[in-house]
Amino acid sequence: MSQEVDKRNSVANIAPTRPGRLRTFLESDIVYSWKRQPVVILATLVTLVMFAAALFAPWIAPQNPFDPGQLDLIDAFTPPMTTSEFTGNFYLLGSDSQGRDVFSAILYGSRISLLVGFAAVIFALVMGTALGLLAGFRGGWRDALIMRIADVQLTFPSILMALLIFGVIRGFLPRSMHAEVAIIVLIIAIGLSDWVQYARAVRGATMVEKSKEYVQAARVIGLPARKILFLHILPNVLRPVLVIGTIGLALAIIAEATLSFLGVGMPATQPSLGTLIRVGQDYMFSGEWWILLFPGVALLILALSVNLLGDWLRDVLNPKLR
C-alpha cells in the first residue's frame, strides 16, 4: 500500500506548477513532438542553414555573381572542385559559361528565391487574411462577392494565374523597366495567385470565432466592431494562417523557380535558382552537368525542408489530430 501511495505522490509532483515562459515553451507539445521526429529536426537544420547561407551570401560567397566585373570569362566551364589554372580561383561547384561560380550563384540565387518567396507569402497572407476577415465577419454581399471571386480563381492552377498576372502587369510597364522591376512583379504575381487559401481558412475560422461567447461578451460591453475584429478575432484566427504560410513558402519558392525557368521571372543577370536551372539545362547534355545539377538540388532541398516543416507544423497545431 505504501508503495502505491508513493507512486501517487510522484505522479502528483509531475503536475505542472508555474514555470517560466521558456520552460513552458520547452515543455510544450510542439517541442516534444519536434524532438521525437528526426526528419523534422533535419528539415529544421537544413532550412536554417540555407536561410543563413542566403542571408550571409555576400560574406560567404567567393564572388558576387551579379557583378560582371568579378566574372572571368576565361574560367568558363570549370568543373567542380577545381582550381582555375588561369586565375587561381577555386570553384567548389564549378563555373558556368560566363565564368560565374556556381556555388556563389546558388547562394545569391537562393537569396532571391527566398526573398520572392517570403514577400509573396506575406503579400498573399495579408491580402487573404484581410479579405477572409471581411467576408467572415461582415457576411452578406461582401462575403458572397469575395468568395465567388476566390472560387473562380481556384479553378485555375495557381501557376497559370501567376503567369497571367505577370503578363498583364508587364504589359503596362515599358520594356526598359522589365528587368528592374522583375522582382516586384514576381512577388505580386505569385502573391495574387495564392491569396485564396488564406482567405478561405480565415473566413471559416472567423465565422467560428465570431459566434463564440467571448466575442458576444465583448459586443455586450459595446466594443466597436473594429476593436472586436483586431483584439479578439484576428489573433485567434492566425494559427491556421501561419501554418498555410509555411507550406505556402515552399510553394511560392517553387512558383518563382517555375516562372524564372519559363523565362518570365528573374533575368539571367540577376539569376534566382529557377533562372540558374533554365540556364543550366542548355548544358545538360554537353558535359557541363554541374551548371544544372547543383542549383536543381539546392532548390529541391530548400523546398523539401520548408515543406516538411510546414506539414509538421500543420499536424502539431491541428487540434483534431491531437
Binding site: 502505491e4 501511495v5 505522490n9 509531475i14 503536475a15
Partner: peptide
C-alpha cells in the same frame, strides 16, 4: 482532482469534512 494529481489515501479526503489522518494515507 485531475488524474495527474489524485491525492493519496481516499481520493476525496481534501474535500471531505470528516477526513482524518488515516484517510490521507490509506485507501
Amino acid at each position: 482532482p485531475r488524474l495527474a494529481a489524485i491525492p493519496a489515501g481516499c481520493a476525496f479526503n481534501p474535500r471531505c469534512p470528516h477526513a482524518q489522518e488515516r484517510c490521507r494515507v490509506q485507501r
